Simulated assay, not measured.
Amino acid sequence: MRLFGLKTCDTCRKALKSLPEAEFVDVRSDGVPEEVMQRALRLFGQALLNTRSTTWRGLDPAERERSPLELLAENPTLMKRPLIESEGELYLGWTGETRAALGVS
């Protein structure tokens, strides 16, 4: 199991605390493998972008129109977090649905 997120993200820290066996991958320093990012984009579409982030608000309208893969490659903090890869499945966010699917209460 791998958890892609940011060390400074409170939600990622909560998820890691509940998933101590997960390998943590900091998207800012380590990035997300292209294959994982492509799968995540196919599964989650625009929901993969955190449009409520400070980074998103700092982009001008022309930049926001670029492909999500380009935006995420240049600005990994734009990714909604955490992105969790477990047994071939991907989960986005630390929602009740994600916790249930991973068997965490």
Rank of each mutant, 00 (worst) to 15 (best):
M1Y: 10
R2P: 10
L3E: 06
F4K: 09
F4E: 06
F4A: 04
G5R: 06
K7R: 15
T8Y: 12
T8C: 14
T11Y: 03
K14V: 09
K14M: 11
A15M: 07
S18P: 15
L19Y: 09
L19G: 05
P20H: 08
E23D: 15
V25C: 04
D26F: 07
V27G: 02
R28E: 11
R28I: 09
S29V: 11
S29H: 09
D30P: 09
G31H: 03
E34V: 13
E35R: 14
E35D: 11
V36M: 03
V36R: 05
Q38Y: 15
R39P: 03
A40Q: 08
A40Y: 01
R42F: 13
L43W: 14
G45K: 11
L48P: 05
L48I: 05
L49M: 02
L49E: 00
N50L: 07
T51F: 07
R52Y: 04
T54G: 10
T54K: 05
T55L: 08
T55A: 02
T55P: 06
G58K: 13
L59M: 04
L59G: 08
P61C: 04
P61M: 01
A62T: 14
E63M: 09
E65G: 09
E65Y: 04
R66H: 10
S67P: 14
S67T: 12
L69V: 15
L69N: 13
L69Y: 14
L71W: 04
A73R: 14
A73F: 15
E74C: 12
N75W: 14
N75Q: 15
N75V: 13
P76L: 09
T77C: 12
T77M: 12
M79N: 09
K80R: 12
K80N: 13
K80E: 07
R81G: 08
P82K: 08
P82E: 02
L83Y: 07
L83R: 11
I84M: 09
E85A: 03
S86W: 15
Y91S: 08
L92M: 00
L92E: 03
G93D: 01
W94E: 00
W94M: 06
E97W: 15
T98I: 05
R99V: 00
A100P: 10
A100K: 14
A101V: 01
A101H: 09
G103Y: 04
V104R: 14
V104Q: 13
V104I: 07
